Computed example of a mutant assay.
Amino acid sequence: MTKQKKVILDVLKNTDTHPTADWIYEKARKTLPDISLGTVYRNLHVLKELGEISELNYGSSYSRYDGNPAAHYHFVCEACGKVLDVDLPVQTKLNDEVASQMGLKVTHHRLEFYGLCDECQTKN
């Protein structure tokens, strides 16, 4: 593992905010001032391919990254865009039900919850 990969992975493992590549870049520069945004993107791609992190894409122009690659659900705030982990067991039985009903091979699923986070509820 290169120094750049390690720093990027450390940044992701030490936050629960599901940051963008730009946010990761700003944090990584505190440790590696010469790191480029391109290097961050390349290493995020490699870490994703290695199964070390997850990439979350919600249809916007940028992805968010999760330092926890284990299967889990998320909550997305519709007001501020914050992404939070949901502490519920992943229902792998759903994979079997869909596979059985449709005659498909299901390898995994993704489920998100949407609404307002605590901070945005307080603002309203």
Rank of each mutant, 00 (worst) to 15 (best):
K6R: 10
T92H: 14
P33F: 13
F75Y: 07
T122N: 12
A79D: 15
I35Y: 07
Y65H: 08
K105I: 10
R42G: 02
K3R: 15
K93T: 06
E97M: 12
Y41C: 05
V86N: 03
V86L: 14
F75N: 03
D118S: 15
Q121C: 15
V40M: 04
R64I: 02
V76M: 09
P33A: 03
K48F: 15
K6Q: 13
R64K: 15
C117W: 04
G67A: 06
V11E: 02
T31D: 15
D85C: 04
L44S: 10
M102T: 06
R64H: 14
T15N: 09
V40D: 04
G59K: 02
A21V: 00
T122W: 06
E97P: 00
G51C: 07
V11P: 00
A99K: 09
N95S: 07
D118C: 02
R64C: 11
N68S: 08
L47F: 07
S100F: 09
S54T: 10
L12P: 03
L84F: 06
L56P: 00
I35W: 09
Q101N: 10
V76K: 13
E119T: 13
G67N: 08
D118V: 05
Y58H: 11
Q91L: 14
K48Q: 11
H18G: 02
H74W: 07
P33L: 11
K13E: 08
Y65R: 08
V83M: 04
Y62P: 02
V90F: 14
I53R: 00
D34N: 13
T92N: 11
G81C: 01
I35D: 00
G67R: 06
T15W: 03
K30W: 05
L94C: 02
L9P: 09
Q91Y: 11
C77Q: 08
H72I: 01
E97G: 01
Q91E: 14
L116G: 00
N124S: 10
D118H: 10
E55M: 09
G38R: 06
H72Y: 08
Q4T: 12
R29C: 08
Y58W: 12
D87L: 15
V40P: 02
P33H: 07
K82V: 07
S61D: 08
K13P: 02
M102G: 09
Y65S: 12
R42Y: 06
K6P: 05
K30V: 06
A79S: 13
H72D: 05
M1G: 15
S100V: 04
V7K: 04
V11Y: 01
Y25N: 02
N43T: 12
S36E: 03
K48E: 10
T92I: 13
R64A: 06
D10E: 14
L88G: 04
G81E: 06
G103R: 10
R42P: 00
K82Q: 10
L56C: 01
Y41Q: 06
T2M: 06
N43S: 13
R42T: 14
N57D: 15
N57L: 05
I24H: 01
L116I: 03
E119W: 00
L9A: 15
V83Y: 03
P89I: 10
L9N: 09
L94R: 03
R64P: 01
K27H: 12
A99T: 01
Y41N: 14
F113P: 00
A70V: 06
A70I: 08
